[in-house]
């Protein structure tokens, strides 16, 4: 197991004003797995990401990376945020943005530059590397953010609704980019999204969260061919079935508010 999340809970406030953002999350991720997390709006997906990455301290539970308990933000994680405008530093070029996290790793200069070039090549933005982020389109900026995470060579890549702020066509391109990058870098990915199609298209496994108090409602293994295509894969009957199932689960949970035990099934 690469990442183990057990009994994770998060409460804001105290006493009567307490808000339980996350009830109880148990989740495990194997190496080289692509796991998507979906859930109804406001179910605390971003809070979950922040707790996992160490940006927020959880109230209960723990997260273990390769068996070691995490406190604060661990070295082996990289996070791609939804809002690239508030994450990429506008005062330096794209190259500098990607270089910055590598600097404290005390690598050789040559090695650092190699990593940067490789990452930028992987996301297909070699010609934009010396431009400033604000000179690039939204999709290109998010690619830079992904390149930054890749160059960092993390154990696990976390993504918090990374494609929510770009248009639909760019989103499709970026999804395919992730699948491409997977083969090249053999990364492990935990992706949080509100887009059901995306969660099924990208993932090996979909984790469906419930409404508040959030817990893992269901985990579905995605039994689709490894080589995915925006048109062909989405035409498959299995895709439609999975999609309908996930959609129903989420919609159902938006209506009701009952606690359920986590169910693991091959649906």
């Amino acid at each position: 197991m690469l990442l183990e999340i057990s009994n994770l809970g998060k409460v804001y406030g105290m006493g009567r004003n307490a808000v339980e953002a996350i009830g109880r999350i148990d989740l495990s991720i194997r190496e080289h797995e692509f796991v998507s997390v979906v859930g109804p709006s406001g179910c605390g997906k971003t809070t979950l990401m922040k707790c996992i990455s160490g940006l927020l301290e959880s109230t209960t539970g723990e997260v273990r990376l390769r068996g070691k308990r995490i406190s604060g933000t661990p070295e082996g994680m990289a996070l791609v945020f939804q809002e690239y405008g508030r994450s990429l530093f506008p005062w330096v070029t794209a190259r500098e943005n990607i270089l910055l996290p590598l600097k404290h790793q005390r690598l050789d200069k040559r090695v650092m530059n190699e990593r940067v070039e490789e990452a930028v090549d992987a996301v297909g933005l070699a010609e934009a590397i010396d431009r400033y982020p604000w000179q690039l389109s939204g999709g290109m900026q998010q690619r830079i953010a992904i390149a930054r995470a890749l160059a960092y060579k993390p154990e696990i890549l976390l993504m918090d609704e990374p494609f929510a702020s770009v248009d639909a066509q760019t989103r499709a391109d970026l999804e395919d980019l992730l699948l491409l990058v997977r083969r090249r870098y053999s990364i492990t990915l935990l992706l949080v999204t509100h887009d059901i199609d995306e969660s099924i298209y990208i993932g090996d496994r979909v984790v469906i969260l419930s409404g508040a108090p959030t817990h893992v409602k269901e985990e579905c293994v995605i039994d689709l061919p490894g080589l995915r295509d925006q048109v062909k894969t989405k035409e498959l009957q299995e895709f439609a079935r999975l999609r309908a199932h996930v959609f129903t689960q989420i919609r159902h949970d938006r209506a009701s508010d009952t606690k359920k035990q986590a169910v693991r099934s091959t649906c």
Binding site: K10, V11, Y12, G13, M14, N17, A18, E20, L55, L56, E57, T59, T60
Partner: peptide
Amino acid sequence: MSAEVRSTLGVPLNEL
């Protein structure tokens, strides 16, 4: 839930 919740900067949230 009696644990104190802290934000990234280590300062207690106002709601607390």
